[in-house]
């Protein structure tokens, strides 16, 4: 099995306060890896380290190495890295423009001007995100008028417009209702054929439903990682067991 991301001794801190300590693990290609753990355990920080998004937060520091398909991400130009590793946020955050303009914003930035190419790209990615049929009649509608679940799928489609290899999702369903969450879970499962997916989630049943691999973080340390089957059903560590049985969270 190919490794998409190899993380070596990754640490991070905010204003000198440690948030992540010495995390080393591998994230396999074309799998869904769920990152779980109690609030404040460093899940989001971990995710933000992977595409070096942490450096946008004032006062944040990271050390250690992250390799994307064998290449040190610190050596990849930031712009390229961000294209290779897409990211979707907790709160659906479409740009307050039309659906079409949301989808073409990044491709145009990267120099695609050809209207036909753009149209094809929009259609392809919206189809991948399972949104095309719902919005194809009116791509010029404001993205703000979509429902929360549709907005989040638009954000996923938007992240796909730059053809990333890896997709990071930071609790993408926590602002959505159950039905919309189910649609997104289904979508992610179908996307893993083409993309490597890392999802931070609060929702253990969700992780059980969609994850192939699971990573359990506790107090900024990696407690346990491996196949989802093993981590989520037969954890070896006490913290994981207690967390899964609802002792804290």
């Amino acid at each position: 099995m190919d490794t998409a991301l190899r993380i070596e001794n990754l640490s991070a801190s905010y204003d000198g306060k440690s948030a992540l300590e010495g995390v080393s693990l591998e994230i396999p290609k074309n799998r869904i890896t769920a990152v779980i753990g109690p609030s404040g355990c460093g899940k989001s920080t971990f995710l933000r380290c992977l595409n070096r998004f942490l450096q946008e937060d004032p006062g944040a520091q990271m050390s250690g190495s992250v390799e994307l398909f064998g290449e040190d991400t610190a050596k990849i130009p930031l712009e390229l890295l961000r294209r290779k590793i897409g990211m979707v946020f907790q709160i659906p955050s479409p740009f307050p423009f039309s659906i079409y303009r949301n989808m073409t914003y990044a491709p145009r930035y990267y120099g695609i001007r050809d209207r036909k190419k753009l149209d094809a790209l929009v259609e392809e990615k919206l189809k991948l995100a399972g949104l095309y049929d719902e919005v194809k009649d009116d791509l010029n509608r404001s993205a703000m008028k979509l429902s929360g679940g549709q907005q989040q799928r638009l954000c996923i489609a938007r992240a796909l417009t730059v053809d990333p290899d890896v997709l990071l999702l930071d609790e993408p369903c926590s602002a959505l209702d159950v039905r919309s969450s189910a649609v997104i879970e289904e979508l992610l499962t179908s996307l893993k054929q083409r993309y490597t997916i890392v999802i931070v989630t609060h929702n253990i049943p969700q992780a059980r439903r969609i994850a192939d691999e699971a990573v359990f973080l506790f107090n900024g340390r990696l407690t346990e990682w491996g196949s989802a089957e093993q981590v989520l059903r037969e954890p070896t560590q006490t913290e994981t067991r207690e967390f899964l049985s609802g002792v804290f969270g």
Binding site: E56, R82, R83, V88, F89, I91, R158, A159
Partner: peptide
Amino acid sequence: KARARCLPPAMALGIS
């Protein structure tokens, strides 16, 4: 407000 909503996803797309 617009920045809080729009800047993170834009920067995640590699836009400066």
